[in-house]
């Protein structure tokens, strides 16, 4: 003890960034800024994934979430960001209800987090010495998870992973269906009723 560890510093950095930007998403009323804060929050989350030794998931988060989903989202924001919609005001009552729900959730979740995440007791340490040693290994990033995850997805059960071939196939089909569906929904259509609203001509 007494020694400051780098892991904790990095965790604090990314963790605080994540929390701050998540809150910024909530309290910002400009939808474009919200999107920007969301990007930063999710990028910081991928940093947390790297710190937890989940390098493949972290990279995946960057590729798919930040690089794919959020670009799509920002694209949508820009398509619909006509002046009146950039900042829609929230009614006061909504804030009260939301704050109550959020507060209650926090009050439930945070104690649970402290309860579940308690450091191992003496008794449990006997059963889990290997894990204790794993904690002290200092280089989370170099542990290869990608190969084991890949094998897991192909249905080869590994050390600490079970086979996931069926969910993998289901999710593939699901993605295909979604792709077709989204393309069908968003395809160019003539607007049925033409309304004369200024500022929509070049959309």
């Amino acid at each position: 003890m007494g020694e400051i560890n780098g892991h904790a510093i990095l965790f604090l950095f990314f963790g605080i960034l994540t929390c701050l930007f998540s809150l910024a998403v909530v309290f910002s009323s400009n939808v474009v800024r919200m999107a920007f804060y969301l990007i930063l929050a999710l990028a910081a989350t991928s940093g947390l994934h790297f710190l937890a030794g989940a390098d493949f998931v972290g990279a995946m988060q960057l590729v798919l979430y930040v690089g794919g989903t959020l670009v799509l989202l920002v694209f949508g924001v820009m398509l619909t960001a006509q002046n009146p919609f950039i900042s829609l005001r929230t009614a006061g009552g909504d804030w009260v209800v939301a704050a109550m729900v959020g507060g209650i959730l926090l009050v439930i979740l945070i104690p649970v987090a402290f309860q579940v995440g308690l450091p191992p007791t003496e008794a449990s340490q006997l059963g889990g010495r290997a894990d204790r040693e794993a904690v002290t290994s200092t280089d989370p990033v170099s542990v290869p998870t990608a190969t084991r995850i890949g094998l897991g997805l192909l249905g080869v059960p590994g050390d600490d992973v079970s086979g996931y071939l069926l969910p993998f196939e289901i999710i593939s089909i699901h993605l295909l269906v979604v792709l077709v569906g989204a393309a069908y929904l968003a395809r160019a259509k003539r607007r049925v009723t033409v309304r004369d609203t200024p500022g929509t001509a070049d959309v």
């Binding site: 990279a59 590729v63 990033v141």
Partner: peptide, 9 residues
């Protein structure tokens, strides 16, 4: 930084 998933990263 020698990451195992460097290509992806």
């Amino acid at each position: 930084l020698d990451i195992n998933v460097a290509v992806f990263f």
